[in-house]
Nucleic acid binder design. Structure first.
Lengths: 207, 207
DNA sequence: AGAAGTATTAATAGACCTATTAAATAGGAG
DNA sequence: CTCCTATTTAATAGGTCTATTAATACTTCT
């Protein structure tokens, strides 16, 4: 009947859930243990320190989060279509990990030391993906299909719209009086709206 | 020689700075006292509890933050111009209070109870401003000057671009290896880029 | 100067947290 | 059954935090 997976896995999952909800500082190993239903010392037995446990959770989540960027679209489709797919993929990943952006930001702000390790994980992959993206964008601009814009600005705008939506979720729930179901409903529309906003904004200026 | 303002004011300011940097949970009254150079008990003497001290800081900051929305543009200018001014104002307020979005979000996530009081402060003003905005937008869409879009979506997109820029500041500093000066430089360009992105995206679809 | 009030400090209670240690228990191999 | 190892628990040291209390310094008024 019971979850026979292993205590270690249970602890990891409880930790993940709590870290995502509360962040590192507000989650205690005592709370994690209580959530699992085991002794608090056991948390330390498996992961030695709270810090190490957090890293186990965090690096896993970070990989998921970055996957939406690093995947290269292989099919032979237009730049705009590629951009659309990337944004949709990005949005989907966020949708499935709604608290993740907050967690990342929270740790970035409160414990910037942690950024160093992130940087390493990101650098290589992102670098090459970005330069390819920049190249393709450049070409489109030259062809006059797209208004002049720096690749960084474009990437930033696209990411901002998606990320902000989930970051601002708690604001929305409260101020608009939504529940989770309504929010998810809204998210479906919002995904398309974000894509539209970016694609429209890229149209060349005059004619 | 010394700052003669009053200890109370000093404490408030130190608290503000620390709360903005670290958030509520990671700021201790001991740290605040140390920053001011007074005894820790004094912090409690003036503000009774850490919670009350935080509220003093927070509600003040919140008013500043909301001011960019609630101000109505009086001049007789086009809808697009109004939108441009509002976005620029919004961006400016964020620029002057760069850590504020994070603080608000942080407290919203970790202590949602606090949202209740925010809601009250927001509701009346925002409500009327929003409905006027919606009305004007509706008219522009009917005239064919702007593609169909819900006022909520538009507001959200505009806010998202601005807020995300400052929320993501720590990510940028690290991954792009910027310093504060470079970030501020980038912000100037980014303000215009955000406005452009929104305005361009609003152009009617076909012709 | 001295009394009365305010501002500030030192000391500490009580709660909770992390991490460690040592002891209890379970389950398999011989 | 017995030993061995891995898992789990109880107990606790040592730290930090908030809040309170009692004592001291500083003002002001007479």
């Amino acid at each position: 009947m019971k979850n026979e997976k292993s205590m270690e896995q249970d602890i990891l999952e409880a930790a993940e859930s709590l870290f995502l909800k509360k962040g590192f500082a507000l989650t205690s190993t005592t709370m994690i243990a209580k959530a699992v239903g085991c002794n608090q010392a056991l948390v330390h037995y498996y992961f030695r320190t709270k810090e190490k446990l957090f890293e186990a959770v965090f690096s896993l989540k970070l990989k998921i989060f970055l996957s939406s960027f690093t995947q290269i679209e292989e099919r032979d489709i237009s730049f705009e279509e590629k951009l659309r797919f990337k944004m949709e993929k990005h949005f989907d990943v966020l949708y499935k990990n709604q608290q993740l952006p907050f967690l990342i930001l929270n740790e970035l702000v409160t414990n910037p030391a942690r950024i160093a390790s992130i940087k390493e994980q990101i650098k290589d992959k992102i670098g090459s993906v970005f330069s390819q993206f920049a190249q393709e964008l450049e070409r489109e601009i030259e062809k006059g299909n797209i208004r002049p814009i720096s690749p960084l600005d474009l990437l930033f705008s696209a990411m901002s719209l998606n990320i902000a939506f989930f970051i601002l979720k708690p604001v929305m729930l409260e101020t608009l009086g939504m529940d989770n179901e309504q929010f998810n409903q809204f998210a479906l529309k919002r995904k398309e709206e974000n894509v539209m906003t970016i694609l429209n904004s890229l149209r060349p200026l005059k004619g």
